[in-house]
Design a protein around this nucleic acid. Structure first.
Lengths: 329, 329
DNA sequence: TCCAACTAGGACAAGAACTGACCTACACGG
DNA sequence: CCGTGTAGGTCAGTTCTTGTCCTAGTTGGA
């Protein structure tokens, strides 16, 4: 490792450690003269990475936030942590991230050393169930689709439709959209010769077929808009949810998978949810229960029914005892 | 941008996109001759980044998983997605990641352009409440502490003790440990002249004081071991939880924040949880309810009490209606 | 079957760059 | 006010880099 580019990369990785580096130490580590270190740092600055220097006796260099994202140089553990993080974030289909999180996932998984992959899947498997309440998306499927979108390649995959019939599709993918805790793939279905939206959690075994797209024109601004327009037409029905909570608005808002504005304050200690949802009502009922405050639901009947069921289940669980434990009660 | 290091970085970033790049296209994008591209690729390979090439007519280059982690070159959106991901992962204190996730968080936040920071905090604020059930850790605090640990700098912070008295501490931090959904800072308390473990969610306003440590010797293998040894002595009491679930073992295991082995199958359709927990029993009760299966709890009384309370709350919520909605019932 | 399109890499000469040594200027803390 | 740090100019020798030639090997499709 005697050449300049390698040294610059190493320098960047050193500077990314959140501490100050005196130039002399850098020179020693990089095995060059201090003058060269100064030149390298000057060069990094030219490249847009803001290296900050504190003058004086206890000075040193440090990489700070700048205009552009510098290349992230992660060690093994950090890479695993990142991978686990982005997998959960992608798995939750966080709104506002959308395709970017799928791309980031694909990018990281593409270069993640295989010896780390095992750790990632293990930790991820242990974590996801704790978080995932709805149908969970397989990160492998998501990466494959993200790659296909980026590569503009056709994909073939198995798809389970609403009536749980399985079919094999050949699609030109155009975009991935994260919407309300669900992932959707928008693409042109070659067999049906029309645009379709697919729920990623129902896609199985995607294979990129090595064919470049002859791009069709999407009848919408972009994939996200297309999904927004289509979404009401299919899938689980949209239900009008109305509920009142005995808690300040900031204790409730955001904790029910709601969008800003869905929860309005009634007074200092009470607030009201009024929104149209197509989540699972069972999920919503569970969420409401663990909020930790008294509440009442007015709409819809489906949600009330689920609450009743969950309440009964909790009561049964706390009432039933085994024979060897306080049999008198 | 005519110099080699910049070009190599750009090449790396192009190759990180999950698609194949023909050498000619790379040459065009980098504005050099194809021969130079081949040389650059040769060089990347020398540096340890495995660039794979497919021969033949539709061939091209692609960066694959190798022995070392290449520098990640993210665009703005991807960086935001990563930041949100690692924040949630760190916030959940995923076991098995530990300090690495805090370091990764610190590294990313250190260089994240400020214009992206706003997006990250917004999305993160909207996401965390959905996930966080226990006390949540402030990512800012965590980054500051991770930096102090890496930098071996003393920190001063406010700390709320068990009896909710607030005090000001001066600590030489030695390590961060993630354990059972909680973060702990291990360090040498200068005023008390002894080793202490601090819950990060109770730490406020950490300030790195610019003093390098005179490292004391920790009476344990490492910080994680120290926490493991100390943890039983304080904090919430450890309770023996026993419960039976009417569901196959794989539907339950891992979904209660349990460690592998806590849930054992009784038969094909039934399993049993038997573990010592210091989680919040309210949290555990909520988790059990949203599992989606019948179950019964034998131990401890605290958990049964919480289940009863949650059941009552659910029943009330489904029973109570407002006046304008089916008043006859 | 051959051709086109691609990767792989050697040789060479002109030019560009990099490096270390030495210098001065400036900032800060004790 | 001195020690220690960053900042950066200059210079000469050396090394690297680049584009332009080559040839060789692989693959998929016409």
């Amino acid at each position: 490792m005697t050449d300049t580019p390698a040294r610059l990369l190493k320098l960047l990785s050193l500077l990314q450690t959140p501490r100050e580096w005196p130039g002399s130490e850098l020179a020693q580590r990089l095995e060059v003269s201090p003058r060269t270190v100064r030149r390298d740092i000057e060069r990094l600055r030219e490249l847009g990475y803001p290296v900050e220097a504190s003058m004086g006796a206890v000075g040193g260099y440090r990489l700070v936030a700048g205009a552009a994202m510098p290349p992230l140089l992660l060690d093994d553990d950090e890479a695993v942590a990142m991978a686990v993080g982005i997998r959960t974030a992608a798995g939750l289909a966080v709104e506002g991230l959308g395709e970017a999180s799928a791309r980031a996932l694909a990018k990281l998984e593409q270069v993640l050393p295989s010896r780390l992959r095992y750790r990632v899947t293990t930790i991820n498997a242990a974590t996801m169930p704790v978080l995932g309440d709805g149908p969970t998306v397989d990160p492998e499927v998501l990466t494959a689709l993200a790659a296909a979108v980026a590569n503009r390649e056709k994909v073939r995959f198995g798809y389970e439709a609403n009536d749980s019939t399985e079919s094999r599709r050949l699609v030109e993918p155009i975009g991935l959209v994260a919407n309300r805790r669900r992932w959707y793939l928008v693409g042109h279905d070659d067999d049906r010769e029309d645009w379709r939206t697919f729920r990623v959690d129902r896609i199985s075994r995607p294979e990129a077929i090595g064919v470049r797209n002859t791009p069709h024109e999407l009848p919408a601004e972009d994939a996200a808009d297309y999904v927004a327009g289509k979404r009401s037409d299919w899938g689980t029905p949209t239900l009008h949810v109305v509920a009142t909570f005995q808690a300040p608005v900031h204790d409730v808002a955001g904790r029910l998978g709601d969008t800003p504005g869905d929860v309005q304050p009634l007074d200092e200690r009470t607030c009201r949810l009024d929104s149209f949802r197509d989540d699972s009502m069972e999920w919503l009922a569970g969420r409401m229960i663990v909020l930790g405050c008294e509440f009442s639901v007015e709409q819809p009947p489906e949600l009330i029914e689920h609450l009743r069921a969950l309440g009964a289940r909790a009561r049964d669980a706390s009432a039933r005892r085994t024979a060897d434990d306080s049999p008198s009660e």
